[in-house]
Structure formats: C-alpha cells, structure tokens
Design a protein around this nucleic acid. Structure first.
Lengths: 240, 240
DNA sequence: CACGAAACTTGATGTGGGTCAATGAGACCC
DNA sequence: GGGTCTCATTGACCCACATCAAGTTTCGTG
C-alpha cells in the first residue's frame, strides 16, 4: 500500500535551498520571523529531500524530528492492523508536520510527489519555540485551522455521500491550488490515495468521477487533470 | 434535533464557583498560571451555566467569546443544510472551547448535561494570551492533542465497522471517566448523539449494543450505564 | 516501439448499515 | 396509578457502496 522504500536512511541531505530562494518563504512558519530570528532558525535546520513514495516517518516511532514542507506534497495516514488505511491529510509547501508533545508520531507521513523539507531536531525546535513567541503564536494558529479542517473532514466522512465527498474534495483542492475558474486542477495523488482520504474504495472514486464527467460537472484530462467548468454547480453537489 | 431552547439569552450568569473550589482547577488552562496570573485571569472571566439541551453558540456566528468548561458535558457539532449532523467531540471539565483566530465559530456547541463554564471576551482573552506564555503553550498542547484525537476519529469514521466504532467509543469514554475495570461507564449522552458522533444511525447503535450485550462483551443497566467486564476483549473488537 | 506492470475504469453481484414501521420502557405529571 | 411523551429497541426490507472480476489505459524500460 505504497510503503515502499526504507524510511529515514534514504533521505538525501544537502541540495538545500537558501531561505530567500525558498518557495515556501512566505507560507511557512518562518514567515513570521525577523531577520535575526530567521538566522538562528535556519541554523537549527537541515534540509532533506524525498522521492515520491518514500516514507518520512511511521506512526508510533519516537518523534525526534519536526519538519516544514517547502516543496511537493506529503500525505499523512493511519493504519489498522489489517491494512485498512485512512489518509488524514495532504500537506503542501508551507505546512508544518511532526509537532508532537507526546513521545511518538501519531501518524505516518509519506511523499506523494518529490518533496523538499526543512528538518529540525525536536529538542532544538522546542527551544526555539520558547525563545520566539511569534513562532508559537503562528503554530497555534496553524493547529487551530488544522483542527477546523479536521472537523470539516469528520463531517464529510461521517455524513456525506460518495458524490458529495468527491465534489467537496475537488473544490478543496481547487481552492488550495488557487487556480482560476477556467484553469484545471491537478490532483497529484492516486485514486487509491483519494479513496483512503474520502473513506471510499478506488472503484467508487472512479465511478463517481465518471458519473460527474458524464453529467458535465467536471471534465477529465488524463487521470489527474480535472476541469471544473462551474464551481457553483459543484458546490451544490457538495452540499456546502 | 436537540436545538431546543434559545441561545445565549438563556445563559444564567452568577452562581459562579471561586477558582479554589472549581472542579476543573487542575485540569483547565488556568492550571498553568501562577497566583498573580490567576488573579488577572479570573478577573477577565465571568461564569455561566446552561441546562442540558441549551445551545452555547452556533456555527457561523461571530466568535466573540471563548470558554473553559468547568462542570458537565458539552457536544460540538456541524450540520449540513438538510439536517444531517456530525458531532465532532464531547467536551468535559477542563476542556477549552471557542478558540478561533477566524471571525466565526466553526462548529456549534450545546450542553449535554447541565454545565458551568468560565467565559472570556475574545479580545480580552487574546490579550491575556500574549501576556502569559504558559497559557499559550498550554493551548498549543491542547490543540495538538485535539488534533491527534480528530485524526483518530477520522480513522474511525472512514474505515471502521459499526461494531469497531462502538467498541472504540466505549473504551474512550471509559478512559476519560477513569473508571476502574469493574466500575460501570456512564454514557450521559443519548443514542442519537452517539450515532451522530460515530457516523451511524440510532438503530444501528442500538442493534450493535444489543449484539455486544448478547455476546457478553458488555452489560447494560438502563440505557446509559455500561459495564465492560473485559476491556481487552473489547479492545480486540475495536481493532486497536 | 514493443513489452510488461501498474493504475484506472467498468460491469456484475453481494452486504452492512440505512430506512421505515411498530413495539417497548422509562420519566414525568396530574 | 394511569396517561402521555420521549427515547430506545426490534423487525422487515432496501440501497449505496463494497467486493470480485474483467478489461483498458498509461507509463516506464530495454
């Protein structure tokens, strides 16, 4: 189920991007730091890269590092012993992951596309957190909106139909990619990932997308590009 | 669907409990404050009471107040326009609610039992937050564990069977009530609340509990008291 | 560019939990 | 102690989505 590749050992260090050239400079936690703080902050960070499909960490492992995603997409997921999987979120440039005041990670993280990240030792990061109130406030804000998103997702998983789930999903992706109304959305993740995110099977995802295409609610270009001719119409289907 | 009773107008002020006599003194956010801070903190708070079934606030309303629950149980929920409801959490003494950096509440909150709370004006609370780093750290910790709980709930809603959901739910309640293995758990909330929390219908909740009783996994005393003779066995059913 | 593997789509069939409906059991009130 | 209201349980039936099983498309590779 996509857990190919050894974990941390395969992360290549180096090839780091300096902060001013970083795609996530204005999105990530570091955006709230002043020049002096940024210097100390980046001194505490190393950079890492992962290929698509590689695992950053597994649920249950000691949470010794935290990460800021600067490029690419990562999925977070939890597994039941028999292999059933629930993807709890897709992260993009600027997102922070691994924050845990407990001892272990509460989810696994795997690259969906090739990614770059800034990596911090847990202890070092927590020290920075104490010294930089802006940083703490920013993380609290992030946690708060992640929580809101999680509650929205609970509504989806607990109460929405397959069609409503897909419509909601497509609209969320479109928003996050800040695409104009005419531009296509790029899904990046596989049908299996979408299914495990929406609490469905790949067959249902595929069938539902086909139905929506037949109805003219979306158009598909390949398996990953989706045109949404009328977002308002999709919003009606989404039940939002 | 349980939205009886007018909202804020019916909240009775007064009858406040002084901090030292407060049930939640060691659980709530105020537990991290020193004497001097607590004085300022409580000066900013008023107290409120609600009867079971009364609404504290509705999703979408301007988020002008934040609350610390000191007694009783509150449920948080979101609605779809056609009335489908998802309960996203049950809060107990010590829990904090209403934290929103956005302008509006992202969920509704309603009393399950009679409750008492400390109430803060949003602006006043945010000011206190800046002045008291302990407080901010505590809230970040809370947000972080709430997020972990939310992800656990997504796994439940997306991937678990009805039986697994109920078993998980009962074990969680048992943990939160810190009951010994022999002691019964008290559900407090209705079947309808349980159903809307677990993404099921009341009929399925009822049937599943009956089946578990027939199998000897639990015993019921009335509709609300549940004995769990063997938690390990229930844990096996829960798939955890 | 042909081959093979993986990912996706589509169809046929099955089923867990939803829906609809009736009955039962407390709780409250007079 | 009987009436009523609300909530919970139980039964019969149904359907949205899962499962099982072919195809088909895409894409990486020699």
């Amino acid at each position: 189920m996509g857990q190919s590749g050894p974990a941390m050992t395969t992360v290549c260090c180096g090839a780091g991007v300096p902060c001013d050239a970083c795609d996530a400079r204005d999105l990530a936690v570091c955006s709230v730091l002043d020049e002096e703080e940024l210097k100390r902050f980046s001194a505490a960070a190393t950079t890492a890269r992962l290929e698509a499909g590689q695992t950053l960490f597994h649920e249950g492992e000691p949470a010794e590092e935290m990460f800021s995603l600067t490029e690419g997409m990562i999925k977070l997921y939890k597994l039941l012993q028999d292999g059933r999987r629930q993807i709890t979120g897709f992260l993009m440039a600027g997102d922070f992951l691994g924050l845990a005041f407990g001892r272990t990670y509460v989810y696994s993280a795997e690259a969906v596309t090739p990614v770059r990240l800034c990596r911090f030792r847990r202890t070092a990061f927590l020290r920075l957190l104490e010294e930089m109130p802006h940083l703490e406030r920013n993380l609290l804000g992030r946690a708060s909106s992640e929580l809101a998103a999680a509650q929205e997702q609970m509504l989806l998983l607990g109460r929405k139909t397959a069609r409503e789930r897909l419509a909601t999903f497509l609209l969320t992706i479109a928003d996050r990619q800040r695409r104009g109304n005419a531009e296509p959305v790029d899904l990046l993740m596989s049908r299996s990932d979408i299914a495990d995110y929406l609490g469905l099977t790949i067959e249902t995802v595929s069938r539902t997308l086909s139905t929506m295409r037949r109805l003219g609610a979306i158009a598909l270009d390949g398996t990953s590009r989706v045109y949404i001719p009328n977002r308002e119409a999709l919003r009606t289907i989404a039940g939002v």
